[in-house]
């Protein structure tokens, strides 16, 4: 069995985000990491490596710096590494098409990804890749038990948790996983650097790297919050609640 893990390199969640000229200023980002939910997907794939002898292929799409996330994946045990290089903005469909093509080329039977990336916070990739491959998708997964060609997964729904079964080939999108993430081992790090990376471009995957129907995009700081307001007495509670809804948009 071959398990492909889609990992995205994002600014570490603790990084300060500076914006200049309508774009995030990447030079100010001190640390890049594998997006947190992708790490749970990777951990689950590594469990499959142990339990059913799966070969784990880490696939990333992004600029040169993103190859570091493949080395990080190799350091914890990924067997094969694939880097689809691409600079700049890209529409969701083009991105998913490229990833799906890479999944086909490595011959994976199952795809694991995080439910959403920590930078765009979108959550489209796993489901879109599943559609392009015409494989079923199970979202918000926290645990997978794999046997050859069959999976049982725990997923979260509005009603609570449920166990679902699904056959290979299929796609899983990870929520926070039940398994603790493994700590990399320095020997793994030393070997990881030497592991070959298969490089692809959008052109050799035959993907039109357009930005979909998006004609303009820019990034700004969130609006300044209004100055703090103080209310007297418990009777002001409903007023505060409605401001949290309408002004702050947080509930």
């Amino acid at each position: 069995m071959k398990a492909a893990v889609l990992i995205k390199q994002v600014p570490d969640t603790t990084a300060k985000i500076d914006i200049s000229g309508g774009e995030v200023d990447e030079s100010g980002i001190a640390k890049w990491s594998i997006s947190p939910y992708d790490e749970y997907a990777l951990e689950s794939a590594l469990q499959m490596q142990k339990d059913v002898g799966a070969t784990v292929v880490a696939i990333t799409l992004g600029p040169d710096r993103a190859s570091k996330s493949l080395v990080d994946a190799a350091a914890v045990g990924a067997d094969e590494l694939v880097h689809i290089s691409h600079e700049g903005a890209i529409g969701s469909f083009a991105l998913q098409t490229a990833l799906a093509e890479a999944v086909k080329r490595v011959g994976a039977d199952v795809v694991l990804a995080g439910k959403q990336a920590a930078d765009t916070n979108a959550g489209s990739t796993a489901s879109g890749v599943a559609k392009i491959l015409n494989w079923p998708c199970v979202g918000l997964v926290s645990k997978i038990d794999a046997s050859e060609g069959e999976f049982e997964a725990t997923r979260s729904t509005v009603a609570g948790l449920e166990r679902v079964s699904v056959s290979s080939p299929c796609v899983f999108a990870f929520d926070k996983g039940e398994d603790k993430l493994r700590i990399p081992n320095v020997r793994g790090i030393m070997m990881a650097k030497k592991k070959p990376v298969q490089k692809h471009t959008m052109a050799d995957l035959e993907v039109d790297a357009s930005n979909g129907g998006i004609t303009e995009s820019s990034v700004t700081y969130p609006p300044q919050k209004p100055p703090g307001q103080k209310f007297e007495g418990a009777s002001s509670a409903p007023e505060v609640v409605s401001r949290l809804r309408d002004e702050a948009n947080v509930i």
Binding site: F93, I132, I214
Partner: peptide, 17 residues
């Protein structure tokens, strides 16, 4: 979000989440 992404891919268009 999951369904929206799937529909977009089905139609070959972008999804904005």
């Amino acid at each position: 979000r999951e369904l929206g992404a799937s529909i977009a891919a089905e139609l070959g268009i972008s999804v904005i989440q």
